[in-house]
């Protein structure tokens, strides 16, 4: 995750133009990204890490498109999720999805019997092995402070 731009977030905390287009702001009770942003600016973001709100951003990018700074509050919500995940505070399904991704490089595999029934050709080979090799190299590289 890239670092947050606090100067832009100052504007976000006073603006709220995206509240009129954000699907979660319009439809989910208690979903209020500016409350999160105000706490982030006050150095009090910790309390949000266990809050369901930070996972309710649908990443539809409406806020980004309508934002006069081309920033949107999606960045803040993603940053909160990253911090929460680091502490192991993810919804169970996110954890299951992540485990599968790391293990197989995918979120599911082609189903051979269904393909046969539909007369579909054999699915192309997955890059799982190369992916796992790449993840290993990446994790080693990350331990190097100059990376």
């Amino acid at each position: 995750m890239e670092s947050l731009n606090f100067k832009l977030l100052e504007q976000c905390s006073k603006c709220g133009a995206c509240y009129h287009i954000c699907p979660s702001c319009l439809n989910l009770e208690g979903y209020d990204p500016r409350a999160v942003i105000k706490d982030v600016l006050a150095g009090q973001h910790e309390k949000w890490l266990s809050h369901k709100s930070i996972w309710q951003c649908l990443e539809c990018h409406h806020c980004l498109e309508i934002c006069f700074q081309h920033y949107g509050f999606e960045n803040t919500m993603a940053a909160m999720r990253t911090l929460a995940a680091k502490k192991g505070m993810t919804p169970p399904q996110v954890k299951r999805g992540w485990d599968m991704f790391i293990k197989t490089g995918k979120l599911g595999e082609p189903v051979a019997p269904a393909r046969k029934k539909l007369n579909l050709p054999e699915a192309a080979k997955s890059g799982a092995e190369d992916f796992k090799k790449m993840v290993k190299i990446y994790r080693e590289a990350k331990t190097n402070p100059n990376f």
Partner: peptide, 28 residues
């Protein structure tokens, strides 16, 4: 069809947990 693709990977899952790996997997 070409061999070797993995998950794109899904932003809402992978980017939230490891931005670097999200970029790297898509770049691959």
């Amino acid at each position: 069809d070409i061999d070797g693709f993995t998950c794109c990977p899904e932003k809402s899952l992978v980017n939230n947990i490891d931005h670097g790996l999200w970029i790297l997997t898509a770049a691959r």
